[in-house]
Design a protein around this nucleic acid. Structure first.
Lengths: 262, 262
DNA sequence: GAATATTGGTTCTATTATCGAACCAAAAGG
DNA sequence: CCTTTTGGTTCGATAATAGAACCAATATTC
C-alpha cells in the first residue's frame, strides 16, 4: 500500500515542465482536479523543504534548486560523468555530431544525457524530456526490443491517442521487426523538426533493453547516407557501453513496467 | 500548516547523498528514527512515481532518474544553459581554469554549476554538494555579504559544531569585514584539499547576495598570485551576471532564510 | 548446520492527520 | 465601482495514517 497523500503531493511536481515551469495555486488545483486547499498545503510543504519556491513577485510556484542537488546524487550513482560521458564524448569527437543517451522509463523514453558537437545545434535543452516510445529513432529502437506484450500495449495506446506517427499497426510492427534485424535505425524530423538521428539499443547483462545511444544532427546535413557512416563508430563503442551496465545497476523503470503486464 | 506525511516523506530523500547513495529500508528507519513500516510505505510511494528505485539484487533503495528530469526543468527555468553557462565558459577559456557557480540555499552554500577547464582537475563531481557558509572562498564571500544577524547566527552555529575552520569569532568577523571591503576572496585547501579558488559575490537587483562566482584550480598551481591575475576577467563579467539576475527570478532559499530571523 | 539476528514486507485498528466547504483580504479585470 | 479571481485560512467530519505484532527469507554466529 502506498501513501495517498504523498502520491498526490508527487503528482503536483509533474505539472512543472520546461514548457510550463511556473504555476498559480489554483491553476494546479484545476489541472489535477484537486481542492486548492490541499494543493496549497502540499506546496507549502515542498517549499519548506526547498523543492518548490514561490516567486515573490508573480506569486507563482516553481521547482526549486533542491532537484539540482538530488539529480547530482543520481548522476554520480549512475556514474554518468565517470563512465558513460567519456564514451559519449569520444563518439561525438569521432563523428562530429551530438550524442544522446536515452533511457526507458515506464512506458516512455527519457533523454538522460546529451553531449553536444561543436556544430552548435542545440540539443542540450532536451535533457530530461520524455516522450512516447513510438517517436524518433532513439525511442523506436528501444520499443523494438521490448517484449511483444509491452510493445503491443504501447502501440495500441498510441493508436488510441491518435498519434500521427502511428496510423496503422501492421506496417509499424514490420518496422519494429526490421529494426531488430538491422540492429539500428535512422529517422529524420520525428522528435525535433529539423533534426535526424541514428540509434542503437543498449542492453543490460540479462539482454533486456535499457535504452539507446544516438548520434544526432540537423536533417539537412545528417542524411541517411551520412548517418550510416557513423555506424562503425557506434558499433565500436556499443560493447563498452553494454559492459558498463553489466557493472552498474541502472534504475530504469523497465522492471516496474514489465511487472505490470499481467 | 504543512503536511506531516509529506514532510516525513521528503526527509527520506535527504538521506541519499553521493557519499551514501544506497540504503536499506531499516537503515533509513533508524537514521530518521521512524517506524520501518512507514518508511516502507513512503519508499513504495516514491518508487511508484519513479523517484526511488529498489535495486533488485541488493534490495537497497536508491534515488531514481526522475530527478534528472525535474532538475532539467529547474535548470532551464534558471536559464543556466542559455545565460549563465556561456559566461562561465568565457571566464574558463580566458583564465584557463574551472569556474564554479555557487548559490545560497537556506544556511548553506550549494554548487549549482561547474564549467571545467581543459586542465583536468575533477570539480564537476561537486555539483549539487552543499556545505556550511564558513568554509571556502565561494561560501565565505556569500556569508560576508549576508545581514549581520544571519551572519552571526551561522557563525555561532559553526562554533557550536566545533568547526575547525572557525575556532574563534573575532578574527573571523574581521575576515568578513575584509571580504566586504575587498570585494573578493581567495582560499586554498578549504573545500577540497588540493584545490584553491578566488570568488566574487553575485547580487540580485535589490543588492542582496544570491551566490558567488569562483575561479578554481589545483593549489600547487593556483596560488594567490596566480588567482589575482584572473580578477580582471572576473570583474569584466560580474556586471553581466548581475544583469542576468535582474531579469531572471532565482529561487534561492535566501528569502526563507531571512524570514526566519525574527 | 542448528540457532540467532536481521532483513524486507504485511496486517489491522486506534488514533491522528487530512480533506474540503465556507471563509477571508487583496489584487486583477471589467 | 463592481465582479471575479487570486493566494491563503479555519475547523469539524472523515478517511488515511501510524506502528505494534506479525511473517518468510536471508545473513550471521557459533
Amino acid at each position: 500500500m502506498s501513501s495517498k497523500t504523498v502520491s498526490k503531493a508527487l503528482s503536483i511536481l509533474d505539472v512543472f515542465t520546461p514548457d510550463r515551469p511556473a504555476w498559480g495555486l489554483r491553476d494546479i488545483a484545476r489541472e489535477l482536479e484537486m481542492s486548492h486547499t490541499i494543493v496549497h498545503r502540499l506546496l507549502k510543504t515542498f517549499e519548506e523543504e526547498g523543492y518548490i519556491f514561490q516567486n515573490p513577485e508573480t506569486h507563482k510556484y516553481e521547482l526549486g534548486i533542491k532537484f539540482i542537488q538530488l539529480s547530482n546524487t543520481v548522476e554520480e550513482r549512475l556514474r554518468i560523468s565517470d563512465l558513460i560521458n567519456p564514451i559519449m564524448k569520444n563518439i561525438s569527437v569521432e563523428t562530429g555530431e551530438s550524442v544522446v543517451f536515452t533511457v526507458i522509463d515506464n512506458e516512455e523514453g527519457l533523454f538522460v544525457k546529451i553531449v553536444e558537437s561543436e556544430h552548435q545545434v542545440r540539443f542540450a535543452e532536451s535533457v530530461g524530456k520524455r516522450g512516447p516510445l513510438y517517436i524518433g529513432a532513439s525511442h523506436k529502437v528501444i520499443l523494438a526490443h521490448l517484449p511483444d506484450e509491452v510493445q503491443n500495449r504501447i502501440i495500441n495506446q498510441g493508436i488510441l491517442d491518435n498519434a500521427p506517427q502511428l496510423v496503422s499497426k501492421k506496417p509499424f510492427l514490420e518496422t519494429m521487426e526490421f529494426i531488430r534485424q538491422q540492429g539500428w535505425f535512422y529517422t529524420a524530423g520525428e522528435t525535433l523538426n529539423d533534426a535526424a538521428a541514428i540509434s542503437v539499443p543498449v542492453f543490460d547483462p540479462k539482454k533486456n533493453v535499457l535504452g539507446s545511444i544516438s548520434v544526432a544532427g540537423p536533417s539537412y546535413r545528417f542524411t541517411k547516407e551520412q548517418a550510416e557512416k557513423v555506424l562503425p563508430v557506434l558499433n565500436d563503442y556499443i560493447d563498452k557501453i553494454d559492459n558498463i551496465f553489466s557493472k552498474v545497476f541502472f534504475p530504469s523503470r523497465r522492471d516496474y513496467l514489465l511487472k505490470n503486464i499481467t
